[in-house]
Design a protein around this nucleic acid. Structure first.
Lengths: 184, 184
DNA sequence: ACCTGAACACCGTTCAAGT
DNA sequence: ACCTGAACACCGTTCAAGT
């Protein structure tokens, strides 16, 4: 039974979690799939395209669960917590997610759920885009740093607490830019 | 005249700006310095250590000018603008700066000038650390994204405007967590 | 003290040729 | 349609040996 595109992606995700992004090489992946490295180029045009697909797949995990109904601030916070949790759930997840070359559709969908929520709170189109950008920049920057220097660091519970408080600061700043008493 | 450590670092910074982080290889750098690749290992124990030193050097540029006297919010904004401007001034600057392995002293100094400013505004030790972390996470996340996908993107002036507005949102959120009418 | 020469164990990618 | 075999042009790193 020949390899399918999705088999390659599955193998890449498993290999990522086992060995990390730096050791995720085409030759190692080929070995795991029982194939020679060149064979991967039948399924993906380049390693970069494969990594983009992998980033898209991980980002997609952030939106599998439906968003629990809450006020807009609660929805924003939930989306941000999911982003961090999902990146932390995969080895080098943050580095992979911030380094795609072509925007994966899942990334656009995630960003869209942020702007949807912000518009439902009465934000203008412009402010929704700016606020969504603030949130993704903050979450990506936070998680990247956290995951990169995880070694000599605080226990998970303390990092969770810091993230929660810092996210509150950011969401507070966004609230000040929305109409008082959001429309939803 | 033999190579000094600082010559290696100078050459690495020039090469970074010319070819970018992915093409900054030990062999290319050695070529430019008129030496064989192995010779670099007399000056730095590894490529990773050299890149850390390079990141430290770039971060150091953020603090060369003395901070103009202003209110705390103005100082925070100036520090954040400097961080972004400095990263954008070097090819792949953001990616390099967020990827150090050992914290460069300059990074600690930069973070310290954020927390100093926040404490001067009456923040508790804890809140100063959290707020400084919010700012660096946001600026790093923003600039990383901006620099990575600069190709099909907005002109610099529009990116500057977006950064300014988004930074205002973040600083606004921080203000809400400080005592009213900051002590300085 | 500082560097060369040469090797080791890898990379991503291409492509004719096989089945 | 899917893959092999083999090559090409590279990597970072080590280390005896040179000066």
């Amino acid at each position: 039974m020949p390899l399918r595109r999705s088999d390659v992606l599955d193998g890449a995700l498993e290999l990522l979690d086992e060995v990390g992004l730096d050791e995720l090489t085409t030759r190692r992946l080929a070995d795991r799939l029982g194939v020679r490295a060149g064979a991967l180029y039948w399924h993906y045009p380049s390693k970069s395209a494969l990594l983009d697909a992998l980033a898209g797949r991980i980002i997609g995990e952030m939106l599998v669960e439906p968003l629990a109904e809450r006020d807009w601030a609660g929805r924003l916070r939930e989306l941000c917590h999911r982003a961090r949790d999902t990146m932390l759930a995969h080895r080098d997840g943050a580095r992979l997610v911030v380094s795609f070359v072509e925007l994966p559709p899942a990334a656009a969908a995630y960003f869209g759920s942020l702007t949807d929520t912000l518009r439902s709170a009465g934000a203008t189109e412009r402010n929704a885009a700016l606020a969504a950008d603030v949130l993704t920049s903050f979450v990506n920057g936070f998680t990247l740093e956290e995951q990169a220097r995880q070694a000599h660091r605080l226990p998970r519970a303390e990092r969770d607490a810091a993230f929660r408080l810092e996210l509150d600061i950011v969401v507070g700043g966004i609230a000040a830019v929305l109409p008082p008493d959001g429309s939803q």
